[in-house]
Amino acid sequence: MNYACKEASKLASDSLDRRLSLRERLKLKIHMLMCGKCKNSNKTMELIRNTAALISQSRSGEIRLTDEQRESLRKALEEKRDNE
């Protein structure tokens, strides 16, 4: 399994973005069963991604238009409507 850690880490990362082929899935699974290092790396990549998603959600919840922005948007829309 010499070449395998590098390749396995690429497959593990890919699996977060695309559906792996059956062959790739098997390869990854077998490698993960035997290799604690890759298992750690894979778990951490998933942890980082899940945490990043949570952080981004929690941050965006506080974002609102300011009254000023809202007012200027309202004006822009009205102008446009009056011109038609």
Partner: peptide
């Protein structure tokens, strides 16, 4: 390639994280 040796093995073993996303968040 900086993370792996020429045979594709980890140069430095990745650690196990015990944290969970909620606590880190």
């Amino acid at each position: 390639s900086a993370f792996f040796d020429s045979d594709g093995r980890w140069n430095e073993a990745p650690r196990a994280w015990k944290e969970n996303p909620e606590d880190l968040c």
